[in-house]
Simulated scan of single mutants.
Amino acid sequence: MEIRTIEASDQAAVLDTLTLAFATDPVTRYWWPGASDYLRWWPQVVFAQGERGFEHRGVSATERFEGVAMWLPPGVHADPARMAALDMPGTEEDEAIAGELRVEMQRHHPAQPHWYLLALGVDPRFQGRGVGSALLRHTLARIDAEGAPAYLEASNPTLIPFYERHGFKVAAVIEVRDVPPLTPMFRPGRA
C-alpha cells in the first residue's frame, strides 16, 4: 500500500476522509450530535488543529485518500487563534465543559518533545483492510528513526487494542462530566 506525504493543496481530500472516518466517533459526535452541525464544524475544527502538520510534512494518506493520518511533530502546536476564530455556536455550559476537557488533555500531554497524532481516519468502506496500520507504520518509521516518542488520545475505546499493537500504552483515562472518555496513549522513543 502506497503512503505519501500530503501537501496543504490536498486539504479538501484529507478533510473529506477524516469527516467520513469520524462520523461515529463517540467524542466527536458528543460535540456535534446533529449531522448538519457535524458536517459543518468537524472539518473546520480538525483543520484548525492540524493545519500546521501540512507545513511540517506530518500529514500522510494512501494514494486515493482511503485513509489519512494527521501528525504534529515535536514543537509544533495548533494555533489557538485559529480555533478561537471559528466562533462555533454553543452555550456557556458547553464552553465550560470544553475548557475542563482542554485542561485535562493538556495535563496528560508529555512534557518532553513528541509527535502528536491528532487524527487517524479511514473511510468506512476501507476499514479492516490494514489501511490504518499502514498509515501508522509510515510515520512511526520516521519517528523511530528520530528516536522520538509519540502520543495520542484515543477517542473511541474500541481502537485501544489497535494502537497497543503499534506500541502505544494507555497512560490514563480522561473523564470530564458526560463527555465520552478519552484515553491518552504514549509510545516511548526507540533507538
Rank of each mutant, 00 (worst) to 15 (best):
R165V: 04
Y163Q: 09
L72H: 01
R129W: 04
R29Q: 03
W32H: 09
A85W: 12
G130K: 08
M88Q: 07
P110I: 14
A78K: 10
D16T: 14
A12P: 02
P74F: 02
D10Y: 05
G90V: 01
L20A: 14
I160F: 04
T17W: 09
F54Q: 03
H166M: 14
Q11I: 09
R125V: 00
W41S: 06
R107Y: 12
E92W: 08
V179Q: 00
F126V: 06
Y151H: 14
G99M: 07
F65N: 04
A148E: 03
A69L: 14
M88F: 09
W32G: 06
I143S: 01
G130S: 05
N156Q: 02
T19H: 00
M105G: 01
H108D: 15
P80C: 12
R137G: 07
P184K: 02
P33D: 07
A145M: 04
A35E: 15
R177E: 12
P181G: 02
P73H: 04
Q127C: 01
G67Q: 04
F186H: 11
V27R: 00
D178V: 08
A148T: 01
A81W: 01
S60P: 08
L135P: 07
G34P: 03
H166L: 13
E66T: 00
G53F: 02
E63H: 10
A148H: 02
P113F: 00
G90A: 00
L86A: 11
W71V: 08
Y151R: 13
G34K: 15
H56L: 12
T62F: 13
L152K: 11
A111T: 11
F162I: 13
A12I: 11
V122C: 00
